[in-house]
């Protein structure tokens, strides 16, 4: 799996910090993680951390397409 830069990790951690404290994420076979645990996983370059980075980056990359779709519908 891809290695991510410190800037990307910082961005993902900022996004995780915006998640309410009572919400955790179920990430398949890896288990369920609180946002604090996910921040650790991102910092430690684990597979879970990389999965959550992939999830956040997929969302961010899709934003222009989503915005275009919404404006086309309105």
């Amino acid at each position: 799996m891809t290695e991510f830069s410190a800037e990307i990790k910082r961005l993902v951690i900022k996004r995780l910090e915006a998640v309410p404290a009572n919400i955790s994420f179920s990430i398949g076979n890896f288990g369920t993680f609180s946002k604090d645990e996910l921040v650790e996983q991102v910092n430690e370059n684990t597979e879970v951390g990389k999965t959550i980075i992939d999830m956040e980056l997929t969302f961010i990359r899709e934003m222009p397409r989503l915005a275009q779709k919404i404006s086309a519908e309105n």
Partner: peptide
Amino acid sequence: PFVFPKKN
């Protein structure tokens, strides 16, 4: 991975 959020 199928990912979902859940409230504790």
